[in-house]
Design a protein around this nucleic acid. Sequence first.
RNA 1: GACUUGGUAGCUCAGCUGGAUAGAGCAACGGCCUUCUAAGCCGUCGGUCAGGAGUUCGAAUCUCCUCCGAGUCGCCA
Length: 585
Amino acid sequence: MDFKNPNFFYEKRVLNMIESIKLKLKNILENVILNRFDVSVNIIVEAPKRKEQGDLSIPVFTIAKALQKPLSDVMKIINETIETSPLSSFFSDYLAIGGFFNIKLNSIAIIKFVVDDFANHQKDYGHSLIGEGKTVCIDYSSPNIAKPFSVGHLRSTIIGHSLGNLLEKCGYKVVRINHLGDFGTQFGKIIYAYQHFGDETLIRKDPINELVKLYVEFHERAKNNPEMDDEARRIFKELEQGNPEYTNLWNWFRKVSLEDYMKVYEKLNVHFDSYNGEAFYNDKMQPIIDELSEKGLLKEDEGAMIVDLGEEMPPALIQKSDGSTLYITRDLAALFYRKKTYNFSKCLYVVGNEQKLHFEQIKAVSKLMGYPYDKEIEHINFGLVLQDGKKMSTRKGKIVKLDDVLDEACHLSLVYINEKNPELENKKLISQKIGVSAVVFNDLKNYRANDFEFNLEDMVRFEGQTGPYLQYTSVRIASILNAESFEFNGNIDYMRLANESEFEIIKVISQYQMTVEKSAIESSPSILAKYLLNLASLFNSYYGKEKIIVENLIEKNTKKHLLAMVKYILDDGMTLLGMQVIDKM
RNA sequence: GACUUGGUAGCUCAGCUGGAUAGAGCAACGGCCUUCUAAGCCGUCGGUCAGGAGUUCGAAUCUCCUCCGAGUCGCCA
């Protein structure tokens, strides 16, 4: 281990400097204790809760207990070990508080590292190599044709989009797949409804909304006429088998729906590599069914074909008693197709909590078939969009269209601009970027698996932990940095950055890469969202008490370096979340 | 009923591989703009971490039980 080598901490850039120090410290202490006492302990090196307590902290209780020695003796051993280790040059002070051995970092060394690291990488600061050479497929958005793009699909869309960005930042090759819900019994229903009580001219005028009306009406009528459901199933089966009349209608419905979705994707700035939906796999299911049959996994039950999954899970229904296929059959076909086409190392499905069982079944079936996909596919579940504590549904006609939500948010941000900065140019365009980003951030800031109460008022509130707060922070910095020319020239006063408020910011900056990796690995954009809020808050606090544009040139330049780093991370982070960056608001 | 998931400040939520005095934002109240964007900053108020038991030097975090909410449980997706 060559701690003196300046490149030591750049190794693969897997860990930032402080994390790296923590890990080395842990290893050194564990080794010393193992060698001296022949006792193996797990030593924790963490950050203390309060900043007066230093930068690193080692709880000594467990070690003392394992060694059966008093705390003070163990403290002494730790102190000696650290003092004689090459790490000591990164530390400036040691404090024993209660049962904790705390360490203050040598801030100058850390600051130099962070600032140099940043200057060397700039545009790809925070970029990681953990995904190099690996491909990840992400199945997200996947709206159901002939249904409006609801706020329910919003979650899948923006979580998936953000995960794609995060994974790319970590070096993965990402394949973004919009697995359109363009097949299934619902099409039998819509076609039935269209043929019995639809109106072509109305649909041409306002396609999506009319199709939704038909769908809703079908369900209302079917309540008292259960034979309509049988008829819809029959129609779908014929569609599956290529009935030309139904296929034409299907094509039409699909086309107009997709045109509608594209408008939303444009607003959200979301894109896909593939729009192969369920229908795409219509001719790719038979080989799967054959293989299941050959492997003796398929059996008949009440006229349907199922795969028995044992005690823990209900059986997977592969083929209905009328011979038509189901969602899971098409998903299996899609899985095999994606593996063959993209050779993914992971395939993520950004789909709601309620489909948990479905993905458990897919894993179980593929495992029974002898494939390792159960380890490669991952259900990125997310919570329901609730309204007044209840799930929103198109069947009951309670529809909240995403388009309306976005418009409302944009409109409100325009109202705010007129209030706060009426002279601003391009108000309309900027208000759209603020409004859409507010909706995106509002969704991503909470842990995805939890339910989500849909509240327009909270969403467009532009105070506190919101998208506009992040944008506003970036804008404030932009207005300083753009006032006169600035570049990273390294002409700075490191001592100044060692002041408490500056060093706090430096430490957070140094955690950016690790935060991005953690967000990507845990598929949790909320981790990054919380981090950005924290960074913005630290900056705003700093901004409130420090003047940046000062007479002293080196002081001014030093502060600008700090601001430029903060701004880069805010902008890069917002982009990763799928928000838009602006320089005036 | 079984399985999954959640219950932390009035509201929205962090924190959960056990660590120090449980944190933010909103709301309420009080300050701060002749000086880099006040969509901001500073401060005050606010908690039996659903309840109980257990493990531990130490529990919001782990285990068990109870209560409450949500989701899922073959011919929808």
